[in-house]
């Protein structure tokens, strides 16, 4: 930009159609590249600047607020059909910084950095004083509930043996004393009924994922587990233009996409992981 010719960018309104189109393309990219946690939906566009790109196109620099939905990352349900996690369920928000190229009327993401944070305990308590709050994903009771629920699933499976991929949510319910947990599973090459050493079971090359919700209730002299799982159809690998730029390290605990599971320790909400990690 020649000296004295202005800032070199324009600032459309955050609710302009062009801004919203760029933001929706950005959120779509985030969800297409999520490997952990839940899909997010656009909540508010905080800031936008549009830079001319040489020789062609424009680059939208966006700051977006998102909210976690109830759809697991690999759930093929269209985002429009995914319910937003409500405050009484302990909502989770995402803060994203995105760069989206618009060229020939098409949007493609150049850069993405997101960080997710659960709502404060005070906010949840304001609308629901007795609702269970999110627990740490490595909480002993949460881990035990997921493992017990998965054991119940495998005990009843007349097909594949399933392995735990990640625990995505956990809540400790005081009355009745119970633990609510949501977790992802994947089918292995073992038959559930014939497994002797689960450690030898390998995830199928064409991964078959499932998502489970379970409640483990503490009873006198034992415990009872109720679990429901949804298995997803095998998804074709999404072919997406990938960013040229390296994605800087997120301030949030981020999980490597290649890792089989997110860290057990860390905040209750998994960090959003988008784009190729460098």
């Amino acid at each position: 930009v020649p000296v004295g010719s202005g800032p070199g960018y324009r600032e459309p309104a955050c609710d302009d159609l062009e801004t919203e189109q760029a933001a929706l393309a950005a959120v779509d990219y985030i969800n297409q590249n999520l490997r952990h946690g839940y899909k997010h939906t656009l909540n508010q566009i905080d800031k936008v600047r549009v830079w001319q790109r040489r020789p062609f196109g424009e680059v939208y620099h966006l700051e977006l607020d998102t909210l976690e939905t109830q759809c697991y990352a690999r759930d093929p349900t269209p985002l429009a059909n995914c319910s937003v996690r409500q405050v009484f369920e302990h909502a989770v928000e995402g803060d994203c910084e995105m760069q989206v190229l618009k060229q020939d009327g098409q949007f493609s993401v150049l850069f993405a950095k997101c960080h997710s944070t659960p709502d404060s305990q005070e906010d949840v308590r304001k609308v629901c004083p007795h609702c269970p709050l999110l627990a740490l994903l490595n909480n002993t009771k949460v881990v035990h509930a997921a493992e017990a629920a998965l054991a119940a699933v495998n005990a009843q499976s007349n097909g594949s043996y399933f392995k735990l991929l990640e625990i995505s949510r956990g809540q400790l319910v005081p009355l009745p004393a119970s633990t609510y947990v949501e977790f992802a599973v994947a089918a292995t090459d073992c038959v559930a009924a014939a497994v002797t050493d689960p450690a030898t079971c390998k995830l199928l090359a064409e991964k078959k994922h499932g998502f489970c919700k379970a409640t483990l209730t503490e009873k006198l002299g034992g415990e009872e587990v109720a679990v429901t799982c949804t298995m997803f159809q095998t998804q074709p690998v999404a072919v997406q233009p990938q960013p040229d730029a390296a994605i800087p390290a997120s301030p949030a605990p981020a999980a490597d996409q290649a890792a089989p599971a997110p860290p057990a320790a860390g905040p209750p909400a998994a960090a959003l992981v988008v784009g190729p990690m460098v």
Partner: peptide, 27 residues
């Protein structure tokens, strides 16, 4: 006292360009 209705009126109608609307709820 004289007023400047054009200025006051237009200032009241123009929404702030950013941030945009909240689609669900703010936390």
């Amino acid at each position: 006292k004289g007023a400047q209705p054009g200025v006051a009126g237009s200032a009241g109608l123009v929404p702030p360009p950013c941030p945009g609307r909240i689609r669900h709820f703010k936390i």
